[in-house]
């Protein structure tokens, strides 16, 4: 699986941050359940939305309690998902795109300028039996 964890994904947090995060997350979960539960009673069209967010937040809760994908400082595997450097930065320091003479080829990241990647991604998916 390619890394798509972003700048922060897999990076360590402190135990204090984890504790504060759990309090905030609990607040989010309660607010979601109450708000969407009420909305679903008023209008049935909100029922699947309430159900979806209920399932999702329950799954998150389980993962958070088990600390799945959550790393503490000192766990020994910091930055589990390092972000690759930008693939298309200009060698002069990345300011070329701001000039008045930026060319057509700066419009697209190299990977996206080619249909090959898209075809490759789709082909890979087909190959996996999708």
């Amino acid at each position: 699986m390619p890394c798509c964890g972003g700048k922060k994904g897999g990076k360590p947090i402190s135990r204090l941050q984890f504790a504060v995060g759990r309090v905030i997350f609990f607040g989010i979960r309660v607010t979601l359940a109450a708000g969407l539960g009420l909305a679903a009673r008023v209008s049935p069209r909100f029922a699947p939305i309430a159900r979806f967010w209920g399932l999702l937040s329950a799954d998150w809760e389980r993962a958070i309690v088990r600390r799945e994908g959550i790393v503490f400082h000192g766990d020994g595997h910091d930055a589990a998902c390092p972000l690759a450097p930008p693939s298309h930065r200009d060698a002069t320091g990345g300011d070329a795109a701001f000039g008045s003479d930026w060319g057509d080829d700066t419009l697209l990241p190299e990977a996206l300028a080619s249909d090959e990647l898209a075809v490759t991604a789709a082909a890979r998916e087909h190959a996996r039996g999708a």
């Binding site: 964890g5 994904g9 897999g10 941050q17 995060g21 997350f25 998150w60 958070i64 959550i70």
Partner: peptide, 10 residues
Amino acid sequence: APYLLFHKAP
């Protein structure tokens, strides 16, 4: 939220 709060990769 899990990403922002816990750095849990989506």
